[in-house]
Structures are given as C-alpha cells and as structure tokens.
Design a protein around this nucleic acid. Structure first.
Length: 283
DNA sequence: CTGGGCTCCTGTCAGC
DNA sequence: TGCTGACAGGAGCCCA
C-alpha cells in the first residue's frame, strides 16, 4: 500500500491530535518486521510530540521529563513506524476491540493509535533519536526527499550516471530519491515519457529534469487526492484515497493509453509489475 | 561496490 | 464449491 503520499496523508490525519498526548498503555500483537526494541511498559508516561515523516517512515517523537518523574522511563526517544505493504494507522478516542490484524496499539489520554497490518511487513521500532539506534540504521541510506529543493534534474542526472540499472528500479531503490513506490514510479515515468527499462545512465540531463518534475507532480497529485486505495489503505480517520482512479498506466494492462490509445503493457522487473505505454514512453 | 534474486506474511482472485 | 497458483502498495539481506 503505502508510498509517500499515503504515509504523508496518514501523518496529516493524526499528527495534530496526538501531539501532546500522554501514553497510558501499549499492546503488541503478533511480531512485525522487527522487535519493538523496548519493554512496552517503559513507554507508559511518555509524552508524544511532533509526528514527522522521512521517506515512507513516520517518526513519533516522545519525551519523558515532567509527565511522570517517578516512572521507570527510558531517555527521550521515539517510535519509528513503517506501514510495509499492507499497514494502516487509525487514531480513535474509543477504539474497538483489537482484530486479528491489529498488531500494535499505543493508547494515550487522547485516543489510541493502532497499526493494522495483515501481512506484517510493517514495523514499530523504538529509537533514542532519528540519527542513532535502529532509526539511524534504517534511514542512513535514504535518498533525497522529492520535495526538497536539492532534488532537481541536475542532482537526479548525477545520481543516475553512477548506476546502470533500469530507471524504474533506480527509483524504487529509494537511495536516490525516496517516496515513489511501484504505483508512482510507473506513473511518473509515464508522465516523463520514459521507458521504465531504460538504463539509468543513459538518460540525458533534460530527460532527468522532466523526470524529477514528473515525480514531484505525480506525488503532489496523489497527496491532493488522499493517496491511492487499491485494497485496504485508509488514513487515520478511516478515509480511502482516490488517486487510483486517475492512474494512467498502473493496473491498466491491456487498456488503452489515455493519450495515444495504444494498449498499456505489463512487464515484470525485479519480481514486480511495471505498467507502461510502449508508444508514449521511449528509451 | 553493484545488481539480481529471495524472503518475510496473509488475503484475494482467476482459472480449472 | 474447492483447490491451486499468481499476485499484491516494501525493502533488507545474501550472494555472485
């Protein structure tokens, strides 16, 4: 499910409401991708601060301090969350009884943040800071944020020159630019008119300029539509996204290209589906 | 160092 | 209706 737009839409849907809340309890379900990295009881009494995003990760900063000076607390830190393929977060004042796919509850005095994740590729991990511990390790190799001013055609071109994988895979890797997963990589390459099989080091500077622009444009359009809901994505209010309705190639194999009418093709790259228009997108 | 392939896990859907 | 295989929004890890 969740690429940058879904993660950001999720963040915006609960960040304000949880900011300042005090943790009253934690429930863990089945194991997620990595262990929590802290005794759940130790989170009780911490105060939740800002919720930020890096790539497809969310960071819930948490502070000890004035709230429960006598409790057994770790030093300040936070929870790094990842939604994996099938995860979603809900924040509700009166949560229902946990279902079979609800694997993490952070109960606070303002409501409960719940991770639902059938496939359990998601993660919730304690880390002292974003730069150290498990978070530091996981975020270390991430590329630029697509909306960072430093991410432009020049930067993209330089980075792609150092690689020789297919451009689609270079985008999915996340070490050049973060946030575009399978849907948005396909859509951005369509918008930029680039064949997803093109070797990354064969793209000219102007085409990289167009691609950088297309990535931002695609992600922004998805943000504006609340992300994509193919099956189970919901924001923390339970709202579905709408971008999938305006996808031009993703999931449209065999259907006519909206620009030229040529049937959209599906191929497999690195065991993942790629959709593209063989006429509009060139090597 | 780079690139390719495998893996984690569960649910859904198409085809027989 | 029931079974089987393909496929699904991610990304770390191992190997050549």
């Amino acid at each position: 499910m969740p690429e940058l737009p879904e993660v950001e839409v999720t963040r915006l849907s609960f960040a304000d409401r949880i900011d300042g809340a005090v943790v009253t309890g934690v429930r863990v379900g089945k194991p997620l991708r990595w262990p929590l990295g802290i005794e759940p009881l130790q989170l009780t009494g911490l105060r939740v601060g800002a919720v930020t995003r890096r790539g497809k990760y969310l960071w819930l900063s948490m502070r000890a301090g004035e709230v429960a000076p006598n409790a057994v607390l770790p030093s300040d830190g936070g929870l790094l969350l990842h939604l994996g393929m099938s995860g979603s977060l809900a924040f509700s004042p009166q949560p229902a009884a946990p279902g079979v796919h609800d694997h993490f509850d952070l109960a606070t005095d303002r409501g409960t943040l719940r991770l639902t994740d059938p496939r359990r590729f998601g993660a919730v991990v304690w880390s002292p800071t974003l730069d150290t511990g498990m978070a530091g390790k996981l975020l270390a190799s991430l590329g630029l944020e697509p909306f960072d001013a430093a991410f432009d055609g020049v930067h993209l071109h330089a980075a792609l020159q150092r690689r020789r994988v297919a451009i689609k895979l270079a985008l999915l890797g996340g070490d050049i630019v973060v946030g575009a997963g399978n849907i948005y990589a396909c859509e951005a390459l369509f918008t930029a008119g680039i064949d997803p099989r093109t070797r990354s080091d064969r793209l000219s500077r102007p085409r990289c300029q167009r691609l950088a622009q297309a990535i931002r444009q695609t992600l922004q359009a998805a943000l504006d539509l609340g992300g994509s809901t193919l099956r189970d994505f919901r924001d923390a209010h339970g709202m579905a996204g709408q971008f999938q309705l305006s996808a031009r190639v993703y999931g449209r194999a065999g259907q006519s290209c909206t620009v030229c009418g040529t049937p959209v093709r599906r191929i497999v790259q690195a065991q993942r589906s790629t959709f593209f228009c063989p006429s509009c997108q060139k090597r």
